[in-house]
C-alpha cells in the first residue's frame, strides 16, 4: 500500500549538527502513527521537513503518491496537512479567534468583505467557540481573550483544536499533551481518535508511553536523526520501545 505521506532519504543539517540524517518516513492512510525518540533525536525536525516548516537539504517528500515541494507551511496546509508545533505557533497578544484563523481568515459576505476586506468576526467567533467546546477546554465568553492570558495547557488545547478543525488529510501533533493535565490529555486523545475516524491520518509525537500504546496503530522509533524501526504496539512492550529509543537494545532486523 502506498503511504499517504512519505519521506525518502531526508537530510537537514544545522552547521555541524545533523538534525535529520538520511531518514525515511511513512504514514499510512487512516492510521495513527506515533513517533517516539529521545530529546534531540530529530523528531520535530523530520515532521517539519514533511510539513514545509523547514526545507530539507536532501531527500524527497511524497503526498498521496505525488512528489511535493512545500516552500512554506502555507503550501502544506493547502494540501491538507495541519501541524501542532511543539512551540504552538501562536501570537500571544492576539485573541483565540485571531489565532485559530491566522492565515485563513473569513471575510464578510457582500461589499464590505469584497472591497473593504472586512473580517466576518461573528462567524469566526462562532466557529472557534464550537471547536473549543468540542474539546471541552474553553468557556464561551473567553473567545476574544488574548492567547497570552491562557495557561500552557489551554494554549495547547487551542493549537490542537485549530489543527483538528482544518486538517483534511494529515494532522501532525508534536507533543500535544506535554503541558496538559490528565483530564485535558484524555480529551486530546479522544479528539485524535475522533479525527482519525473521519479518515484523517495522524502523526503523534509523544513521550507518554501509555498514551502512545493506547492510540497508536504503529510506532516509529526515531534515533540519532533517523528512523530506527517501526514497531507494532501489539507485539512489543513499553520497555521494548524505551529500550530501542534509548539504544539500550537493538531491534531485530526486519
Amino acid at each position: 500500500m502506498e503511504p499517504i505521506l512519505k519521506g525518502r532519504n531526508l537530510v537537514k543539517r544545522y552547521g555541524k549538527v545533523t538534525a535529520i540524517d538520511h531518514s525515511d518516513f511513512d504514514l499510512m492512510k487512516g492510521e495513527i502513527l506515533a513517533v517516539i525518540g529521545d530529546n534531540g533525536a530529530g523528531k520535530s525536525s523530520i515532521i517539519k521537513a514533511l510539513c514545509g516548516a523547514i526545507t530539507p537539504d536532501e531527500g524527497e517528500v511524497w503526498l498521496e503518491g505525488k512528489r511535493v515541494r512545500f516552500a512554506s507551511p502555507i503550501d502544506a496546509r493547502e494540501a491538507g496537512i495541519e501541524t501542532v508545533y511543539q512551540t504552538l505557533a501562536m501570537s500571544p497578544a492576539l485573541s483565540i479567534t485571531d489565532n485559530m484563523f491566522m492565515g485563513r481568515e473569513i471575510r464578510m459576505p457582500g461589499l464590505m468583505g469584497k472591497y473593504l476586506r472586512k473580517l466576518d468576526r461573528p462567524k469566526m467567533e462562532k466557529f472557534a467557540r464550537d471547536k473549543l467546546s468540542e474539546l471541552g477546554l474553553m468557556t464561551i465568553q473567553n473567545i476574544n481573550q488574548p492567547v497570552e492570558s491562557l495557561s500552557g495547557g489551554q494554549r495547547q488545547g487551542v493549537a490542537v483544536a485549530r489543527a483538528a478543525a482544518f486538517g483534511s488529510k494529515v494532522i501532525i501533533l508534536d507533543e500535544p499533551t506535554a503541558a496538559l493535565g490528565v483530564k485535558e490529555s484524555r480529551k486530546v486523545l479522544e479528539l485524535i481518535q475522533d479525527v482519525r475516524s473521519r479518515g484523517v491520518s495522524i502523526i503523534l509525537i509523544s513521550h507518554n508511553m501509555p498514551h502512545v500504546f493506547e492510540v497508536a496503530d504503529r510506532i516509529h522509533v526515531h534515533r540519532l536523526g533517523r528512523k530506527l524501526c517501526v514497531i507494532n504496539p501489539k507485539d512489543h512492550s513499553m520497555s521494548d520501545a524505551v529500550a530501542y529509543m534509548t539504544g539500550a537494545k537493538l531491534p531485530e532486523a526486519a
Binding site: 512554506s72 505557533a89 501570537s91 492576539l94 491566522m102 492565515g103 481568515e105 471575510r107 473580517l119
Partner: peptide, 25 residues
C-alpha cells in the same frame, strides 16, 4: 483592526516565527 492584513501585521510583530508557522506570509 478589521482585516486579515492588520491581524498579520500584529502577528508578525508579535513573533515572526510563530506567524510563519501559523500560515502568515
Amino acid at each position: 483592526r478589521a482585516t486579515a492584513w492588520g491581524r498579520h501585521v500584529y502577528a508578525v510583530g508579535d513573533d515572526p516565527e510563530a506567524a510563519k508557522l501559523a500560515g502568515v506570509n
